[in-house]
């Protein structure tokens, strides 16, 4: 039985992986130092194939960069007795802190709904509708609000037609990383599609890390919170005293 299966599997993989993607990035490590003010990352690559370029449909590329997932609470305000109050609350189990999709053409033309759902590519399908407790609320409405708010903050984006593809072989694009970036591993996925079907995908990681003073402060705050707190107070008292002393000197002279 196994003797028949193994060659079959090989054949199957050949059929789908006639074209595969090889990619690189200008940097796979982003250092957040004190003067970090956003960053730009160049993603480039090529299509590897052993056979001539298929001509049944154009090749399209979708690149998705995703920040670390975190549980997200969304609250909706309602007017009660004339004042606006948080009423309904939905706790999504996970949403990415950052999400950018770049593609060669408008996404609904190059990606089928089924494959979008299967690979969770577009922003909407990237945030699963799984919640801590189901309280019979309109979940897509709450999910859309996360997307809307984060799009306004520059954290989420779907930018169509910004990936350039030459001769169906070489591609490149730049992804903007905003200044309010959160530390973590940023999963970068590249999808090849033909006829709205995903035919290959590639995955790599951009590591976003605080460095130097930022790193030191962050670690101290989390590992030695009491010392950190006392140090913060000492700085505050010293600054208060210093200002007072300096002003006294200025007054005398």
């Amino acid at each position: 039985m196994l003797r028949f299966l193994i060659p079959l599997l090989f054949l199957a993989s050949f059929a789908t992986a006639q074209e595969s993607v090889v990619a690189g990035m200008s940097q796979n490590r982003i250092s957040i130092s004190a003067n970090f003010d956003g960053s730009e990352i160049l993603i480039f690559g090529a299509i590897k194939r052993e056979t001539p370029i298929p001509d049944y449909a154009p090749l399209e590329i979708i690149i998705a960069v995703s920040g670390p997932d975190e549980p997200t609470t969304v609250r909706r305000k309602e007017r009660i007795f004339g004042i606006w109050v948080n009423k309904d609350t939905v706790e999504f189990e996970a949403s990415p802190s950052f999400y950018a999709v770049a593609s060669t053409n408008p996404l609904n033309e190059i990606l089928s709904v089924a494959d979008d759902a299967r690979f969770s590519i577009r922003i909407g399908s990237r945030i699963p509708l799984t919640v801590e407790e189901d309280n019979q609320l309109n979940l897509p409405e709450f999910r859309d609000s996360i997307i809307r708010i984060r799009e306004n903050q520059g954290l989420y984006s779907e930018r169509e037609s910004i990936v350039t593809l030459n001769d169906e072989t070489l591609f490149d694009t730049t992804i903007q990383l905003p200044s309010n970036l959160v530390e973590g591993d940023y999963k970068t996925r590249i999808f090849l599609t033909r006829n709205r079907q995903v035919i290959d995908d590639f995955e790599t990681t951009i590591m976003v890390r605080k460095v130097g003073l930022e790193r030191w402060i962050f670690n101290l705050a989390h590992e030695r919170p009491l010392i950190y707190g006392l140090l913060s107070l000492t700085i505050a008292i010293m600054a208060g005293w210093l200002a007072s002393a300096v002003f006294r000197l200025l007054k005398i002279s």
Partner: peptide, 8 residues
């Protein structure tokens, strides 16, 4: 904006 995102 009626919705707000809070930390989980």
């Amino acid at each position: 904006e009626l919705f707000t995102i809070g930390a989980g």
